[in-house]
Design a protein around this nucleic acid. Structure first.
Lengths: 343, 343
DNA sequence: ACTGGCACTCCGAGGACCGGAGTGCCAGCT
DNA sequence: AGCTGGCACTCCGGTCCTCGGAGTGCCAGT
């Protein structure tokens, strides 16, 4: 961008984005001059618009129509033109009152995703706290009905995983207690990703006769760590897609498809939210997913003790209210983090 | 319906439904005479059509257009004109191979819902096995980190519910063992709905000093029984809604809204699937939900030992292939039932 | 560097037109 | 009776045209 006159050009871009978001229609120079106190005439604005179009920040749907921001235009808007828009007190109160009522982790996730959908009027996504980053709080072995054993894993995020495993014969309470003690000693406080390695030598500590049983239990434990099964995303507000106006109607099929591909969403989210406090934005083709070419994703990480444990965010038409959406995502992420840290 | 000529009129209705489902366009008398060997001329068919319209089984979108089945027409088709359409071997094989690979209850539900969406090319819904109908297999109490206790409830459907509860002080292993034994003796094999009553007298069996602790544990246990939290439905294939053709586009918003109202869906499903082997169908306004006025729901119960434990089904435009859809729903329900009975 | 003026473009709404598909009805045939 | 061919009628939906309006680019003037 040229050095001189740059300020006004940016102001024009900002005005275009804001008006387009508000009206959902291409915006022309005249309307712009009227609605925004830019202090110049429509003709001047037209010159600026020609420049912005040259640079690829805006485009015309067709000759002699108004301008519409491009992905690149939104990007600039988000990066440089957006001012933090604090949430209203009503919104803040909604966050507090809704999330404080949660009884357990599932409930927190469930409430958070609904809240986010409602606040932003878009599709909300919350990833379950990933097992990979969390640590072991406790491992428990419970004999259940004869020679079956319930293996329970509790993490620091409050997540509980369990498996029932058939160990062939009834292990005595002595062996069970021993195994339980050694297991907890070895794993307590460790990252879930480390568990597999720290328990690998464990069977040697037992009598040869008991080792098959120990190995079965360890297999079950490691099975409950297999992260791909548990890296789940919960969605809410998909109906908001249909509210986004008729021009968006043809995009909604592809978007629904993408939303069913949890793996793809997970990948996208993890690329976007690298650290705890930042809110990441991907606009249109930046997602590098054809199905999401017409939408933008706003996401943030959440977690406890400064460590990211999972992500959450929203998805909506590129023509969205970025400042509001980003504020909502950030606020909810922070509040969920706080709850996790407290619990 | 009149006694004479009734057979052919039904045949005409069947032909109209089949053609409309296939072509998605109003079907006229001429096309009908050509595509189906009804043995009569278009003019005769027109008379029959006039009659069917009189009776409310079909309707014209506008004068001098072809006919379209009404909800009532589909109803008659489903009740009297549909012949069981067995699944193809490929479909059967898909069911077996996919569902047999499931590792636990969550996985069964997850796979079943995807499978159903794929087989029917519609929106699939699977309700989690309801806690209300299932029975207690085992209750376990696990001390975890100081004065906290993990209360685990295992049901005959393989579902595991757990709560962590703060009991204030460390209960001795003796008290814990006693409580555990009495709990299991009282509840094992009982319906979850009965649990609250059968444990109500339990605190009296303990020393007055221990009773607060016992009550805390019982509260946690009863909390995990609260069915409304766990009566969940899993969805898949929502993107199929968008594939249902442009005429269906305006319905998809309302339908997505309805799909987010789990409570409403649950109510609908439980009204529809009363016993294990039957497949229930609700067509259009029969659902008594405005949002679902343009769709039909096909559902069935599943469970073990002849008892219904939850429901599953699909949802799609009223213009759907009922025989195929009903066959798929029935097959998947049966297979899931078999898995539950085996595990 | 900005502005007013002006000629030009192009969309989209509105209206006329027309072909086609489909219907209802009737008279005649079996 | 019940079925059929024939016929007049309706109405949708595509096509074509017109026309007003919004918006643009450019240029000369301040």
């Amino acid at each position: 961008m040229a050095a001189h006159g740059e300020d006004r050009r940016l102001a024009v871009l900002r005005a275009i984005v804001e008006d387009y978001v508000a009206t959902r229609e291409p915006v022309g120079s005249k309307a712009l001059a009227e609605r925004h106190a830019l202090g110049v005439s429509p003709a001047t604005i037209r010159n600026d618009m020609a420049f912005l179009e040259e640079e690829g920040y805006i485009a015309q749907p067709h000759t002699s129509a108004g301008r519409v921001p491009t992905d690149k235009g939104y990007r600039l808007f988000v990066d440089r033109l957006t001012t933090v828009k604090p949430l209203s007190v009503a919104e803040k109160r909604a966050i507090h009152s809704l999330l404080d009522g949660a009884v357990d982790l599932d409930d927190v996730v469930d409430r958070a995703v609904r809240l986010l959908a409602q606040l932003t009027r878009q599709v909300a996504m919350v990833q379950y706290p990933s097992l990979a980053r969390s640590t072991v709080r406790h491992v428990e072995l419970v004999p259940v009905g004869g020679h079956r054993l319930l293996v329970v894993l509790i993490t620091n995020t409050g997540r509980v995983e369990q498996r029932i495993v058939d160990v062939g014969l009834d292990p005595g309470e002595g062996l069970l207690g021993d195994l339980r003690a050694r297991l907890n000693a070895a794993t307590s406080g460790r990252r879930l990703t480390e568990v597999a390695t720290v328990v690998s030598g464990l069977p040697e500590a037992f009598l040869p006769d008991d080792r098959p049983l120990v190995r079965t239990v360890l297999d079950a434990l490691e099975d409950s760590l297999s992260i791909e099964r548990e890296e789940r995303i919960v969605l809410a507000g998909t109906a908001n897609l249909a509210r986004s106006g008729p021009d968006f109607a043809r995009s909604i099929g592809p978007v629904l498809e993408a939303l069913e591909e949890q793996v793809v969403l997970l990948k996208l989210l993890s690329e976007m939210a690298e650290d705890l406090s930042a809110v990441g934005v991907r606009i249109g083709r930046e997602t590098e997913l054809d199905n999401l070419a017409e939408v933008a994703v706003v996401a943030s990480g959440y977690g406890s003790q400064g460590e990211i444990v999972a992500r959450l965010g929203v998805l909506g038409p590129t023509r969205m209210d970025y400042p509001m959406t980003m504020a909502a995502v950030r606020a909810v992420a922070r509040y969920v983090s706080r709850i996790l840290s407290a619990g």
